[in-house]
Design a binder for these strands. Structure first.
Length: 260
DNA sequence: ATGTCAACAGTATGTTGA
C-alpha cells in the first residue's frame, strides 16, 4: 500500500499539477494539506473520475486537509481531539481497508508557529501536545497507523540546507524539535530516516529568493509509523522532481510503501 | 537586492498567511 503526503498549497492552484502527479505516482492513499477550500468547493469529480474516494476537512481561505484513497475508507473523523474551541481545519483520520490489513491514516497540517515566541507559537506547541495524546491513544489500542503530513518541523540540522538561518524559527527552535522527539519517543518510526541517512534531503523549497534553484530546502513533511506499520515498511521516498515542474507547490510529495 | 505565491475582498490592489 503506497501512502503519500503532499502539501498542495491550494487545490484550485494545483488542479493540473496534482492529477498529473497522481497519474504518475499512483499512490493508493494521498493525504493532502492546505487545500485552502471549503468542502463544497473542492473539485471532487476530478479525483473521483480517477478512481479515488475522497474525504475533506476544509476551511475558507486557509488550512484544510483531505484524504484521497483508491481503497475503501471507514470511520472518518475530522479535527484533532483535545480542544473543542479549535476551529482550524488541520487534521483528518480514516481507516483504509487494505488487502492484508486495515491501516489508520492520520493526515495533519501542523501549525507553522511563527512568529516565535508568541501566541501562534503557543498554539503550535499546544497542538503538538494534543497530537502526542492522540498518538498515545492509538498506540494503546495497538492500531496500525501512519501519522503523516506537513509537520512544520525541521527535525535536525542536517534537514536544512542552511540550519543557521532557522535557529530561532518556529520550525527549528529547540522547543519544537523537543516536542517532535517526544512524539517519536512514544515508539514511532520516522519513515524517511528509517531508510535514508545524511544531509541534503528536503521536502520544501520557499518560492522566494530562488530557493529551489539554489537547493535551499528544508525537510518538514514526515510520515510517522506505529510499530505495526514500521514492521511493514518497504520503502520511503521524496518525489523531489515535482518541485521543478510548472505551477508547483512549494512542497513535494513524500510517500511510504507498506506491505499491507 | 527581501528576488514568491495563493486566497480574499471587491474591483485595483492591499492584506494575510505561509
Amino acid at each position: 500500500m503506497k501512502i503519500a503526503t503532499f502539501n498542495i498549497n491550494g487545490i484550485k492552484a494545483r488542479i493540473d499539477a496534482l492529477p498529473a502527479w497522481l497519474k504518475e505516482a499512483q499512490p493508493d492513499v494521498a493525504l493532502l494539506q492546505e487545500i485552502k477550500s471549503v468542502d463544497e468547493a473542492f473539485p471532487r469529480t476530478v479525483f473521483e473520475d480517477m478512481g479515488y474516494n475522497l474525504e475533506t476537512h476544509g476551511q475558507k481561505s486557509f488550512n484544510g486537509v483531505a484524504i484521497l484513497s483508491k481503497l475503501p475508507l471507514e470511520d472518518v473523523t475530522r479535527g484533532l481531539p483535545g480542544d473543542e474551541t479549535d476551529e482550524q481545519a488541520r487534521y483528518i483520520e480514516a481507516t483504509v481497508m487494505g488487502d492484508t490489513a486495515p491501516v489508520r491514516v492520520c493526515g495533519l497540517y501542523l501549525p507553522n508557529g511563527n512568529p516565535a515566541p508568541g501566541p501562534k507559537y503557543d498554539y503550535k506547541l499546544d497542538w503538538m501536545a494534543r497530537l502526542y495524546d492522540r498518538a498515545k491513544a492509538l498506540l494503546a489500542d495497538e492500531t496500525t497507523f501512519v501519522m503523516a503530513g506537513d509537520y512544520n518541523i525541521i527535525p535536525q540540522a542536517e534537514d536544512a540546507a542552511k540550519p543557521e538561518s532557522w535557529r530561532e524559527d518556529a520550525l527549528f527552535r529547540l522547543e519544537s524539535r523537543t516536542a517532535f522527539r517526544r512524539l517519536l519517543n512514544l515508539g514511532l518510526t520516522e519513515a524517511f530516516r528509517a531508510r535514508t541517512q545524511g544531509p541534503g534531503h528536503y521536502s520544501f523549497w520557499d518560492y522566494q529568493a530562488g530557493a529551489w534553484n539554489r537547493n535551499n530546502g528544508i525537510r518538514i513533511d514526515h510520515l510517522l509509523l506505529s510499530p505495526q506499520a514500521a514492521d511493514m515498511l518497504v520503502d520511503c521516498q521524496i518525489d523531489k522532481e515535482v518541485r521543478g515542474r510548472d505551477k508547483p507547490s512549494d512542497h513535494v510529495p513524500v510517500w511510504v510503501d507498506l506491505a499491507a
